[in-house]
Design a protein around this nucleic acid. Structure first.
Length: 475
RNA sequence: GGAAGGAUGGCUGAGCGGUUUAAAGCGGCGGUCUUGAAAACCGUUGUGGCGUUAUACGUCACCGGGGGUUCGAAUCCCUCUCCUUCCGCCA
């Protein structure tokens, strides 16, 4: 969610940014938002004035009734004067009578005074009805106002290259050696079944297309990789490991920005209003919602390993072979909450961490700087890290590192108290994979394959596999 | 799954339909005193929205969430969530 003050003060600038993101629909929403904002503020001013009056009049009425110092006659005369003012819709004047009661009372009895008070209560009811009606209008306008804002993406950082499509993303130099093969490198969807470590047919049999089973050393290799990554992150890089719910409430999906725009890519649970986790980011981003953190506790580094569940409707028919794009996959996710001054430094650190893992796995990789047209909904700036897969002959996105600045923090309402004691500010929230597991498995299989279809296990993973060095065909 | 009791500011805890602003204590912050500290004393203390002459002032909302009753709700009613205790079941 954007800061409404920004939209109010620089609407044209905001629209320009949205055009860089190719989001014409959001551009149209800006005028709608401004209009709703105006209506909302006008209504608020009106209803709050009435509420202030009601508060004063109700309080004064109660005090008059219980007042033991004034004679009944004076109280009765006051009530009558107030009633007359209310009938003329002159609330200020009514208030004045409470503050300065008439000098001389009449000869009313206690019973007559109570009777008159009941009339006074009834007159105040009219004010209450007006307030109720206005409150309803306010509620309607605010709902529409909020709903519109939910569809507006984050603003790109000034440093993000402006371009329309992902084809313009800027590739940084390749790190590591791209291996030269003296035989035809096979794709993992050939290697896996031949070695008996990936079973596509039986995965599809039980769950449908884009599901698969890892078997034997395939499953163990995945588990070794996950353990390697978690161990590095927790012991070397000071990340706190989290085990999180794999199903989350609807609010969580809104908080991290998946909803409302990407409802279609989620797996809802029938009748429960809960959703299968599309990424650990959703769970971790919402974990601290509504809280105010101490600046001294920032940055907070979290790592969560979870399965991720995605419908992948957007890419129906694409990447259907192998385990590159599937409905359920493992991911080790880094998540940071940082102060506003440090978030881009923290972003750079996250990239270096992810790259250090890939370097240790000894797989060639490169950084990809994402242009405006490919930024996505929540990020101000994004880098992908890609591994080379010589079998399918493509660069595989194994990590995507985003700074969302305060966009998610506004939705989830997470702030920090600055060390100098000033007003609470929204935290900056960053997320980045380290790493996407199936694609890393693909890269390992294809880079480490031998001429006879075996797979050498990367050095750093061997301790996790009882020292085993190679996965060989059976028999 | 059943029964009962709860949920109040950073924390403890009073208030249970109107008697100035949610009492009091603890903690935090600032100050006085002190060579320094402690103690004591004084002052101060949350979040969000709206308005304005905008580090300030005014105003509205917030006592677990939502809805209702009422002229007026922390207080009464409904509902949901969570917590505690007891019973049942259980990896």
């Amino acid at each position: 969610m954007l800061d409404i003050t920004l939209i109010r003060e620089k609407p044209d600038w905001v629209k320009d940014q949205l055009r860089k993101l190719n989001d014409e629909a959001a551009v149209a929403r800006i005028d709608k938002i401004l209009e709703l904002d105006q209506r909302r503020r006008a209504l608020l001013t009106e209803v709050e004035q009435l509420k202030a009056l009601r508060n004063n009049l109700s309080k004064a009425t109660g005090q008059l009734r219980g007042n033991k110092k004034l004679e009944v006659g004076v109280k009765h005369a006051t009530a009558q004067a107030v009633i007359a003012a209310l009938e003329a819709d002159d609330y200020q004047k009514a208030q004045g009578f409470f503050e300065n009661p008439p000098q001389h009372g009449n000869s009313a009895t206690e019973a007559e005074f109570q009777e008159t008070m009941n009339t006074l209560f009834a007159r105040l009811g009219g004010l209450g009805d007006k307030i109720t009606a206005l409150d309803e209008q306010v509620r309607g306008v605010e709902e529409a106002f909020y709903e519109e804002q939910l569809w507006v993406p984050n603003m790109p950082h000034a440093s993000v290259p402006v371009a329309d499509s992902d084809e313009a993303n800027i590739a940084h130099p390749v790190q590591g050696e791209i291996r030269k093969f003296d035989f035809k490198a096979q794709p993992h969807w050939e290697l896996g079944p031949a070695l008996g470590i990936i079973d596509f047919e039986r995965g599809v049999k039980i769950a449908g297309t884009r599901f698969y089973i890892l078997a034997g050393m395939g499953a163990r290799l995945q588990r070794a990789l996950i353990n390697f990554l978690l161990d590095e992150l927790t012991t070397l890089w000071n990340f706190e490991e989290l085990y999180v719910p794999l199903m989350v409430k609807r609010e969580a999906m809104y908080g991290s920005g998946q909803f409302p725009k990407f409802v279609d890519t989620s797996y809802p649970l029938a009748d429960l209003d809960m959703y299968m986790l599309p990424t650990a980011e959703v769970a971790i981003a919402n974990m601290l919602s509504g809280e105010i953190l101490d600046e001294a506790s920032l940055p907070r580094n979290y790592v969560g390993h979870t399965p991720c569940f995605r419908q992948e409707k957007m890419s129906a028919g694409r990447d259907v072979r192998g385990i590159k794009r599937v409905h359920q996959f493992e991911k080790v996710e880094m998540f940071k909450l940082a102060s506003q001054d440090t978030s881009y430094d923290e972003m750079e650190k996250m990239m270096q961490i992810a790259e250090s893992m890939i370097a240790k796995l000894e797989i060639p990789y490169r950084r990809l700087e994402i242009v405006t047209g490919d930024l996505g909904f929540t990020a101000t700036k994004k880098f992908d890290i890609e591994m080379w897969a010589p079998g399918c002959e493509e660069w595989l996105e194994v990590s995507s590192i985003s700074n969302t600045e305060d966009f998610q923090a506004r939705r989830a309402n997470i702030k920090y108290r600055p060390s100098d004691g000033g007003k609470a500010k929204f935290v900056h929230m960053l997320n980045g994979s380290c790493l996407g597991i199936p694609r890393t498995v693909i890269a390992i299989m294809e880079n480490y394959q031998t001429a006879d279809g075996a797979i050498v296990i990367p050095n750093v993973l061997r301790p996790y596999l009882g020292g085993q060095e190679i996965i060989e065909p059976k028999g």
